[in-house]
C-alpha cells in the first residue's frame, strides 16, 4: 500500500514536471521569454530527477547509494565547471559533448535493463524493441557527438574524412546492426546480441560524422540531439517511466523540426549535409 502511494506521488510529480518542461520549451522559442524559459525547464528537470529518489524500487544499500551519488556529483560538478570556463566561441562543441553524454546514458540504461529482463525470465516484444532502439540510437548519438566535438575543438581535422572502402564499411556496419535487431527481435537473442549491437552502433556513430565538414557541424549536432531525445524516450519505455518518454519525445520532435529549419536557413538539404562528401567525389 505504501509502495503504491509512493508510486502515485512520484508519477503525479512527474506529470507536473512534464507540464513545466513543456511550458519552458514554449518560452525558450521566443526571444523575450527565452531565458526564463530555460530556468523553468531546469526547474522541471531537477524536480523530476529529485523525486525519482523516492522510487520504491531503489535499494538504499551503501554500494548503490555511493555509485549513484559519486557518479551524479562528479558528472554535475565537472560539466558545470566546463560549461562555465569555456569561451563563448566554444559553445557549439560543448553542446555536442553534453549531447553525447546523454546518448551514452540512454544506451547504458537500455543495456543494463536488458540484463535485468534476461535475469527475470521472459523478455516481452515491447521490451526487446525498446532496448534495441535505445541501445542503437543512443550509441550512435554518443560517438557521433564525440567526433563532432573533436572536429569543432580542432582536436582532429575539420575537413570531411574519406578513406578507401568507406561506403562498403558503412554498409557492412549497418547490416550488422540490422542482423542484431533481427536476432534480438525474431530469434529471442541473448545479452550477446545487445552487446554486439552496442559496439556496432558506437562504430557507426563515428562513421556517420567523419565525412561531414566542420562548417556543417551545427546541423549534425541538431540531428544527434534529436536522436538522443528519441533514445531517452526509448529508455523511458525500458524503465516504464512516463516523464522520460515525454521529455525524450519532445526533444526528438522539436529537434527534428529544428534540424529542418537550420538546414533550410543554410540553404541546404539535410541529405546534402550528411552525405554531401560522398557525392562530391562521385561528381569529381
Amino acid at each position: 500500500m505504501i509502495e503504491n502511494l509512493r508510486d502515485a506521488v512520484v508519477d503525479l510529480v512527474y506529470l507536473v514536471c512534464a507540464v513545466v518542461i513543456i511550458l519552458g520549451l514554449k518560452r525558450l522559442s521566443s526571444p523575450r521569454t527565452a531565458r526564463s524559459g530555460n530556468k523553468l525547464v531546469a526547474a522541471g528537470l531537477l524536480v523530476a530527477v529529485g523525486v525519482t529518489l523516492l522510487d520504491p524500487h531503489i535499494h538504499w544499500r551503501p554500494a548503490n547509494i555511493a555509485v549513484m551519488l559519486i557518479g551524479t556529483v562528479v558528472g554535475a560538478a565537472g560539466s558545470i565547471y566546463l560549461a562555465r570556463v569555456v569561451p563563448m566561441t566554444a559553445m557549439p562543441q560543448m553542446v555536442a559533448l553534453f549531447n553525447g553524454m546523454g546518448g551514452a546514458t540512454a544506451a547504458l540504461v537500455a543495456v543494463a535493463e536488458f540484463q535485468r529482463f534476461v535475469a527475470s525470465g521472459a523478455v516481452t516484444a515491447g521490451e526487446r524493441v525498446s532496448v534495441a532502439f535505445g541501445t542503437t540510437v543512443g550509441s550512435v548519438a554518443f560517438t557521433g557527438s564525440v567526433i563532432a566535438f573533436l572536429k569543432l575543438q580542432e582536436l582532429m581535422t575539420g575537413r570531411p574524412v574519406r578513406f578507401p572502402l568507406q561506403i562498403p564499411l558503412n554498409v557492412a556496419v549497418v547490416a550488422g546492426i540490422v542482423a542484431m535487431w533481427a536476432w534480438l527481435l525474431g530469434f529471442a537473442g541473448s545479452s550477446a546480441s545487445v552487446w554486439i549491437m552496442f559496439g556496432l552502433a558506437l562504430l557507426f556513430g563515428i562513421l556517420l560524422v567523419l565525412p561531414v565538414g566542420g562548417a556543417d557541424m551545427p546541423v549534425v549536432i541538431s540531428v544527434l540531439n534529436s536522436m538522443t531525445g528519441l533514445a531517452a524516450a526509448a529508455a523511458g519505455f525500458v524503465l516504464e517511466n512516463q516523464i522520460l518518454v515525454v521529455a525524450g519525445a519532445l526533444v526528438g520532435a522539436s529537434g527534428s523540426l529544428l534540424t529542418i529549419l537550420m538546414s533550410r536557413a543554410m540553404n541546404r538539404s539535410l541529405a546534402n549535409v550528411l552525405f554531401g562528401a560522398y557525392r562530391t567525389r562521385a561528381a569529381g
Partner: peptide, 30 residues
Amino acid sequence: PTLLHTPLMSGTNAIHGIVLLGGILVAGTA
C-alpha cells in the same frame, strides 16, 4: 526565429539530460 536556433538546440539538449534519472534508477536497483 532563426536567431534562437542554437540556444533552442542547447535548451532541448538539456531537456534530454533528464535521462539522468534513468542512470539513477539503474544505479539504485543494481
